Computed example of a mutant assay.
Amino acid sequence: MNTPSITQVQGVLVGHATNEEALTGVTVVLTPEGAVAGVDVRGGAPSTRETDLLDPVNLVQQVHAVVLTGGSAFGLAAATGVVSWLYERGYGFDVGLTKVPIVPAAVIFDLGIGRADIWPDATMGYAACVAAETTVAEGSVGAGTGATVGKVGGMGTAMRGGVGTWSETLANGVTVGALVVVNAFGDVVDDQGRIVAGARTSDRTLIGTGTLLRGGLSRQSFADSVGQNTTIAVVATDARLDKAAATRLAMMAQDGLARAIRPAHSPFDGDTVFALATGVHEAPPLVTLGAVAADVLATAIVRAVQAATTAAGVPAARDLAGS
């Protein structure tokens, strides 16, 4: 049986492109036939593209992909390659003269690990589209390649983040899925509140961001973390929603982020959640979709760090579990 993932939502594919030398990459969530979309930005340090058009008052109703990428603001260039891939295949918003693919994007800051002079570009974005399929790799892949968490003390307290996904199908056949890139300032916790990956000591003992914050940190410690974090996610459903409902779905999904990451939505994070609705099935009550979206996003976040692997001397959760 296939592991539940966002691609169990009808009309959704996922592709990764990875640069293991530079420790960066791109993950694209493709909806070539179009999906109604919304977005909710909660973090204090976001870096995004094409999020204004997702406002329910604006004209365009559907998007054709969402790009999640490393490389900080440099990495937004990856979306150009996704636009090219879609355009070549005739997908996009019909403006009469041509079709314009609509591709929102969000980035994480991963320049502090691997190489800071190489970041995702249009070629890598295109490659992620070519690789898109229904099987979704998790962990240190795609946009999660250089992801880290627990950076309250800079990279000296960090552990590995990554990509995670999960989904749930309701009794009426509607599926809700999530895909997330976890690159948080805070710790990732399970449904019992136990830290799975987060701030640690030099001997790899988990101490937790909350403990370090309460104990007092130097201004330099915070300076090392400013703008170097962000958890970015896509939640998707095959229910029929309008843009206002998709926006509310993204907002409710943020509750899952706050459950699984502590603290969340900090001044140093750019936490952004996109919501997609492919419109295959009649929608159940929005409160149901939102509640499930929060649950699957929280599960995907934990899976992201559980699947991550050590790189550049930064340990992963699986290393601590085996020590």
Rank of each mutant, 00 (worst) to 15 (best):
residue 241 L to W: 07
residue 315 P to A: 15
residue 284 P to H: 04
residue 41 V to M: 11
residue 186 G to V: 03
residue 129 C to T: 07
residue 213 L to G: 08
residue 23 L to K: 10
residue 46 P to G: 09
residue 219 R to A: 13
residue 172 N to H: 04
residue 139 G to P: 12
residue 264 A to N: 02
residue 247 T to I: 00
residue 253 A to K: 09
residue 12 V to D: 08
residue 197 A to W: 11
residue 145 T to N: 06
residue 55 D to L: 09
residue 91 Y to C: 00
residue 147 A to P: 12
residue 249 L to P: 14
residue 87 Y to R: 15
residue 45 A to F: 08
residue 310 T to I: 01
residue 126 Y to E: 14
residue 168 E to L: 14
residue 135 T to G: 01
residue 245 A to V: 00
residue 195 I to Q: 00
residue 185 F to Y: 15
residue 98 T to M: 14
residue 206 L to K: 02
residue 181 V to H: 06
residue 122 A to C: 05
residue 146 G to R: 01
residue 191 D to C: 03
residue 258 A to G: 11
residue 266 S to Q: 09
residue 293 A to N: 12
residue 135 T to A: 12
residue 238 D to N: 15
residue 136 V to N: 03
residue 24 T to K: 03
residue 160 R to C: 02
residue 117 D to M: 10
residue 299 T to V: 15
residue 155 M to A: 06
residue 143 A to V: 08
residue 74 F to K: 12
residue 169 T to A: 00
residue 257 L to K: 06
residue 61 Q to H: 05
residue 49 R to I: 04
residue 319 D to R: 03
residue 24 T to P: 01
residue 26 V to E: 05
residue 196 V to F: 08
residue 197 A to D: 12
residue 286 L to W: 04
residue 122 A to I: 04
residue 114 G to I: 07
residue 134 T to D: 11
residue 29 V to D: 03
residue 41 V to E: 12
residue 162 G to W: 13
residue 164 G to L: 06
residue 202 S to V: 09
residue 94 D to P: 07
residue 297 L to S: 02
residue 55 D to S: 09
residue 132 A to R: 12
residue 196 V to Q: 10
residue 119 W to F: 15
residue 310 T to A: 12
residue 196 V to L: 11
residue 139 G to N: 10
residue 78 A to K: 03
residue 217 L to F: 12
residue 25 G to H: 01
residue 24 T to R: 03
residue 110 D to V: 05
residue 197 A to C: 11
residue 204 R to L: 14
residue 189 V to W: 09
residue 303 R to K: 15
residue 236 A to G: 05
residue 219 R to H: 02
residue 314 V to W: 04
residue 205 T to P: 00
residue 198 G to M: 01
residue 282 E to L: 02
residue 282 E to A: 09
residue 97 L to Y: 06
residue 307 A to K: 13
residue 74 F to P: 03
residue 177 G to W: 11
residue 140 S to V: 07
residue 68 L to I: 08
residue 234 V to M: 12
residue 220 Q to S: 15
residue 12 V to Q: 09
residue 160 R to Y: 01
residue 95 V to L: 13
residue 7 T to S: 13
residue 169 T to L: 00
residue 299 T to C: 06
residue 215 G to E: 12
residue 112 G to S: 10
residue 90 G to E: 09
residue 16 H to K: 03
residue 234 V to I: 12
residue 213 L to H: 08
residue 35 A to G: 05
residue 63 V to T: 11
residue 233 A to V: 05
residue 251 M to D: 02
residue 191 D to G: 04
residue 266 S to A: 14
residue 231 T to M: 10
residue 301 I to H: 07
residue 259 R to F: 04
residue 296 V to R: 11
residue 62 Q to V: 08
residue 130 V to Q: 14
residue 190 D to S: 07
residue 62 Q to R: 14
residue 291 A to G: 15
residue 33 E to W: 03
